[in-house]
Computed example of a mutant assay.
Amino acid sequence: MFLNYFKDFIVKKTLKKSFQNLKNSESTQAIKKIGLLVDASVFSETESLVKQLEVNGILANNITVIIYSDTFNTLETKKRIAFGAKHLRWNGKISSAEVNDFINKEFDLLISYYNIEKTILLKVTHSSRALFKVGFSSIDKRLNHFMIETDGSDFKLFISELFKYLKILNKI
């Protein structure tokens, strides 16, 4: 138990330090590849969220989904790549090869679909090589390029607002 608090403290300290050296990347590239990072311990409708992205013109094979879960017994985590807090080492490195592959993959858009700050989710979002990052406004403002202020359970509103602003920004 104490080691988990220590691990979270170290990772948050490292993230805070790296936020000072943050560089803004301005991408004018159209969005084709999407990475979707979902906290399944809070939100259980990942498939509906993916279908909503497809309705808005994103091809299914261009959407990569990774799921964080506190417990690994849900049906969602068996269909998708799943990870948990146990995959975060005390030095801030992630031990899962699948999560590291997700982080290193270049996406045009990363959707961080979580509204409660958990250390490993912050680490994955921050480390991602995505060109444009979108998330909830309740998460640290320095983490995402664009924040949407909605409730986490209303994914249809989140996606409609996202695509409304992506059209304004000439990203789609």
Results as ranks from 00 to 15, higher is better:
residue 108 D to Y: 04
residue 104 N to G: 04
residue 73 N to P: 00
residue 167 K to M: 05
residue 64 T to F: 08
residue 33 K to Q: 10
residue 57 G to T: 08
residue 12 K to V: 02
residue 150 T to Q: 13
residue 111 I to Q: 03
residue 115 N to P: 00
residue 71 T to S: 15
residue 152 G to C: 03
residue 156 K to V: 14
residue 82 A to H: 14
residue 132 F to R: 00
residue 163 F to A: 10
residue 135 G to C: 05
residue 65 V to F: 05
residue 39 D to Y: 08
residue 145 H to C: 05
residue 55 V to H: 09
residue 25 S to C: 05
residue 61 N to R: 08
residue 152 G to L: 14
residue 83 F to A: 04
residue 64 T to M: 06
residue 25 S to E: 13
residue 25 S to R: 09
residue 113 Y to C: 10
residue 5 Y to F: 11
residue 164 K to M: 07
residue 67 I to P: 01
residue 156 K to H: 12
residue 70 D to K: 15
residue 75 L to W: 06
residue 132 F to K: 07
residue 151 D to W: 01
residue 38 V to L: 02
residue 81 I to R: 09
residue 34 I to R: 02
residue 135 G to P: 07
residue 30 A to M: 11
residue 159 I to W: 02
residue 3 L to G: 05
residue 114 Y to R: 05
residue 137 S to Y: 02
residue 140 D to G: 00
residue 3 L to K: 14
residue 157 L to R: 13
residue 163 F to H: 11
residue 139 I to C: 10
residue 120 I to F: 06
residue 152 G to Q: 10
residue 38 V to C: 03
residue 57 G to V: 09
residue 165 Y to A: 06
residue 153 S to Q: 12
residue 133 K to V: 07
residue 66 I to F: 08
residue 62 N to V: 03
residue 157 L to P: 00
residue 149 E to R: 12
residue 9 F to T: 11
residue 19 F to I: 03
residue 128 S to L: 02
residue 18 S to E: 15
residue 56 N to K: 15
residue 19 F to S: 05
residue 30 A to I: 12
residue 21 N to L: 13
residue 40 A to N: 15
residue 30 A to P: 13
residue 157 L to T: 15
residue 102 F to Q: 03
residue 67 I to W: 00
residue 109 L to N: 12
residue 36 L to H: 03
residue 15 L to W: 06
residue 44 S to H: 14
residue 63 I to Q: 08
residue 81 I to N: 13
residue 113 Y to I: 07
residue 29 Q to G: 00
residue 11 V to G: 01
residue 86 K to G: 08
residue 42 V to N: 14
residue 164 K to D: 09
residue 145 H to W: 08
residue 70 D to E: 15
residue 111 I to G: 04
residue 21 N to M: 11
residue 73 N to L: 09
residue 135 G to D: 10
residue 70 D to M: 06
residue 167 K to D: 14
residue 115 N to L: 01
residue 30 A to N: 14
residue 107 F to Y: 15
residue 20 Q to L: 12
residue 21 N to G: 06
residue 42 V to W: 07
residue 153 S to P: 00
residue 14 T to C: 02
residue 131 L to M: 11
residue 93 K to H: 10
residue 28 T to M: 09
residue 120 I to S: 06
residue 38 V to K: 01
residue 85 A to P: 02
residue 94 I to A: 09
residue 48 S to V: 01
residue 55 V to C: 00
residue 134 V to M: 05
residue 79 K to Y: 07
residue 122 L to P: 01
residue 71 T to D: 13
residue 3 L to C: 06
residue 151 D to H: 06
residue 114 Y to Q: 09
residue 169 L to E: 10
residue 43 F to W: 12
residue 31 I to C: 09
residue 73 N to Y: 09
residue 106 E to S: 01
